[in-house]
Design a protein around this nucleic acid. Sequence first.
DNA 1: CCGTTCTATAAGCAAATGCTCAAGCGGTTC
DNA 2: GAACCGCTTGAGCATTTGCTTATAGAACGG
Lengths: 318, 318
Amino acid sequence: MSAKSDNETSRLDEAARAGWLYYVAGNTQDEIARKLGVSRQSAQRLVSLAVSARLIKVRVDHPIAKCMELERELTERFNLLGCEVVPTDPDAPASMVGIAQAGAAEMERHLKSNHPKIIAIGTGRALRACVEQLPTMDCPQHRIVSLLGNMMSDGSATAYNVIIRMADRVNARHFPMPLPVFANSHEEKTLLHTQEPVHNILELARQADVTFVGLGQMNENAQLVVDGFVTREEARSLSRIGAVGEITSWVYDREGKLIDGLINDRVASAPLFPDQDHPVFGIAVGEAKVDAIWGALRGRLINSLITNEATAEILLSK
Amino acid sequence: MSAKSDNETSRLDEAARAGWLYYVAGNTQDEIARKLGVSRQSAQRLVSLAVSARLIKVRVDHPIAKCMELERELTERFNLLGCEVVPTDPDAPASMVGIAQAGAAEMERHLKSNHPKIIAIGTGRALRACVEQLPTMDCPQHRIVSLLGNMMSDGSATAYNVIIRMADRVNARHFPMPLPVFANSHEEKTLLHTQEPVHNILELARQADVTFVGLGQMNENAQLVVDGFVTREEARSLSRIGAVGEITSWVYDREGKLIDGLINDRVASAPLFPDQDHPVFGIAVGEAKVDAIWGALRGRLINSLITNEATAEILLSK
DNA sequence: CCGTTCTATAAGCAAATGCTCAAGCGGTTC
DNA sequence: GAACCGCTTGAGCATTTGCTTATAGAACGG
């Protein structure tokens, strides 16, 4: 199934062994070199390969008081099903470091279940980072369904194809959405949605046991603008009429209400089901996203949150 | 409940934060020092505290081919319910490093269950090492029951009081066995076992959902001899009539059959229930233990095994 | 068969890390 | 109030690590 050569596999195997000797058994790289019968440089390379191939998983097993407190406050204030707040690196307050690990851990919890689950996935930088942190596993019992297509209207694909990467890592059945992000008109969208396969996928998404989405801010730096789905001009008008964020391209205001008309008429993504019982994780960090997060929480477009300390503090100070 | 001062707690909190910045966010200790507003030396101390307080958990997430293969062979040959083989440090083939982590991970799996479980525990260096690796958690739903007392016949206690440490770490109800390891006679043992509280504990042990025991070899270096429960002379005679190992002080031969009479008449530990459906993990490493492990597996005194590569290889070459 | 390419090894160096020791600091004892 | 104890801090130093460059050998293709 995998295209890896024996060569590469045994190399990873050696790397795992070196990583084990280094991180678990506490050997120095010199010792590892001797024990494995290679040069110190090779040992160093093996260890660093083990790290970069994400064979080495580190977690901090201590409830950092501040983060716990923020989780508690957020959960209470927004009646969340789940909430995780990770420490912030003061130099990179909007970095995905930590968030990615936490998100991956949450995904892993669900994936490890023997009970078959439907896992719905949006797109975006945050989700991509999370999926990159997933270990390779074997989960044929689960189904991963995409909440939105990743086609431009001309048929070309966008960068953040999260679902393919995820399915690849965890070996699960997956259902990418064979649609553009935006239809050319409301009518076209309706038409697309009635196609049999699309209909099935939308149905799966509706039944998802757990959902993970990224949150986009709605201003001139919006991902929708960067990706070219929405013109700078459109973004400005959306912003002017109160849009603060988007989830799977559904644009909403500070109350978490979807904006009527405009581009929401043409969004081909699976509809959002606010206030359901199954967890819907929003994953986002950074001051720029605070309004988007706040709106999504208010309108219960999401009911679970993964963010960092700095972002959580701003959210709670509003 | 805990005797930790606020001071100590906040120090651990800082340590966790430093550990997070170091291991997860990949900062250097200089950067951490700056971000946390302390000297580099303090940062270094915090990081090393985080490690020594076992806040930092590292696991290698790669099926090392050799170990997998050994697990498969052992499982097949001895029809095991569970088997884990960890890499061996060539310089310390009988070291608990790795074994302890693997054992702790197995324990953690059971402890994390919401469903209340009865977990039975023996004693010994291996089990102690495993328990030391457990994170602190809160598991009031489970019951931990000791399979044997830890009293000398004069009432003094022995070193490896595993169950207390374990219960302490995971905050579960626990049932130490209020008995000496050996009674003075078979009659006394029978009498002791009919006492109400002892009877209850034995009953709990019988119902255990999962059991963890260490395996002792039976020669002049046997733990039973070291601890002074058995004289060197007795050990020699046991060895002469075929004893190869002991589990919770029950002595058995190379077929895994309990040795009739002699000290087995006086063992006050919970009886062994070979061939049950619930996992009974034996944890042991080292060439010296191979005969003991082999016998226990043959007689199905254990049905699951945690050991290391080197030991597994010798086992399979027999 | 030769040249090319790739990889492992070796040497060396700068940065990062871990450790030791002495000084400082707060509290306690006499 | 002086001496002392325990603990933390800061400085210096030895070790370890990550990275760069040079070289030798193996693998490959023509």
